[in-house]
Nucleic acid binder design. Structure first.
Length: 191
DNA sequence: CCCTGATTCGC
DNA sequence: GCGAATCAGG
């Protein structure tokens, strides 16, 4: 595979949207995340606060450019093979018993955030994150997608966060924040 | 262990 | 220019 104009464009677009190199690579197909990263660097566009970077350059945060509702003009031949929607198990506690692999998603677990005493900060973060949520359906969830449900399951307005999970956990960082409240989350000065 | 991006360096 | 291997961090 070579870096055709189109591919480079998609690369730029996705990178700009904050997609991870691996996601981009998967999307492009035929390349590894290393290739993507290498290309990104060669193209000069690199920095973008994420994961692990020695240079913590994060001058300006981009609130929200103008993400439109996603149209997929992609002639991409390979689409993710729909995962078998097995859905037997159903955890009872959000304890993180999930070994690895097989995380059907019978009925995911999360205790919807009510008007609890959760860190207002965490909640704010969640609300902010929900805008970026990938809005996945039950069958689209994987071991690596946040399984935090949003909306009313009884309506059309229901979906799962779907953002990258916090290694090992069932939710993305933001949702882990409100899902696993140690105990009384008062005003601790821990940060 | 999972993931992230950054760098190096042979091709 | 390319990207696997490696590195460094979360």
């Amino acid at each position: 595979m070579s870096w055709t104009d189109e591919r480079v464009e998609l690369l730029k677009k996705m990178w700009g949207e904050g997609q991870s190199a691996s996601q981009i690579a998967k999307e492009l197909g035929g390349v590894t995340r290393n290739a993507v990263i290498g290309k990104v660097h060669r193209l000069g566009l690199s920095n973008r606060a994420t994961g692990a970077t020695p240079a913590k350059a994060e001058p300006k945060e981009k609130p929200a450019p103008a993400p439109k509702a996603e149209a997929k003009p992609k002639p991409t031949p390979k689409t993710e093979p729909a995962r078998p929607a097995a859905a037997p198990a159903a955890e009872a506690k959000p304890a993180v018993p999930a070994r690895r692999q097989i995380i059907p998603a019978g009925q995911p677990l999360p205790p919807q955030p009510s008007a609890n005493e959760i860190s207002p900060e965490a909640l704010a973060k969640v609300n902010e994150v929900e805008k970026k949520a990938k809005k996945l359906t039950l069958m689209e969830l994987t071991e690596k997608t946040c399984k935090w449900p949003v909306g009313d399951p009884a309506t059309e307005d229901f979906w799962f966060c779907g953002l990258p999970v916090e290694a090992g956990k069932p939710y993305c960082e933001a949702h882990v924040g409100v899902a696993f409240q140690p105990m009384s989350s008062r005003r601790d000065r821990r940060r």
